[in-house]
Amino acid sequence: MAETLLFNALREAIDEEMARDPSVFVLGEDVGHYGGSYKVTKDLYKKYGELRVLDTPIAENSFTGMAVGAAMTGLRPIIEGMNMGFLLLAFNQIANNAGMLRYTSGGNYKIPMVIRGPGGVGRQLGAEHSQRLEAYFQGVPGLKLVACSTPYNAKGLLKAAIRDDNPILFFEHVLLYNLKENLPDEEYVLPLDKAELVRKGKDVTILTYSRMRHHVMAAVKTLEKEGYDPEVIDLISLKPLDFDTIGESIRKTHRVIIVEECMKSGGIGAELTASINDRLFDELDAPVLRLSSQDIPTPYNGTLENLTIVQPPQIVEAVQKMVALRV
């Protein structure tokens, strides 16, 4: 076991997969000499050369399309979005070509590529650098959406994403790169389509992902002292959703709180709520409750920024009310 920071866990995943398969390469802004905006690819160009850790010009839509073309012809590109928000500039290539092209081509081509990078609300980064693109991209057919949240799952999931033959958007969070955890010495790969049961409980099912998992667990500490027993599930796969795990939990607790960092309108929680109502309505003892970010551009001011995203005390209060059925 070695104590590993999350950004280094990601780096290990890329390093191991590049060593394992010569068709795997990294491209993006400042991934080479600079080592990546959060050092996820630090010094990899020294080991693998400049073509395999390719510093690109600042041309998001074009280098993303280039990765699609490389993937169609047999390589396995990993794109780093220096900040995931920048990939709004590559929306067309991600949606039309990475996402839809396999279907449109009638199965002529596969697009095995990973698009990864830092996103989410950080510390006063301003609206453009604080985006949760998962909400925008969830409507694109053909894409898989995965969000990591710990050094352990970051490494195992990224390795799986690199090996997968589909285009995968892999979400990291700017405020989680320095999380530490002891990782196994032996190789491991985690399934991309399985939610993670973080805490077993019986009172209420809390569905969350990415950084909000840690806000939820902070709230759980308080709730435990008060005698509450919530079940916490980290969705991991934001598309497709793991309804085996979600359903099993809801059949037990009959109550659901969703805690997410994306905005409420059209967010992951909106889709999740609708799907739960479609599939499990009869199991519910209370309406599904969504705790989401406010529907506003993330403000710069620290106090306003804190008001924009969900904080642990709101989660505590929501559980208290839900369990007392005062929803």
Partner: peptide, 21 residues
Amino acid sequence: GEGIPVALGAAFQSKYRREVM
């Protein structure tokens, strides 16, 4: 315009296969 980057990727792939692989 969206086909041009894809074509560029295929061309990159040829160079990559030759020089890296």
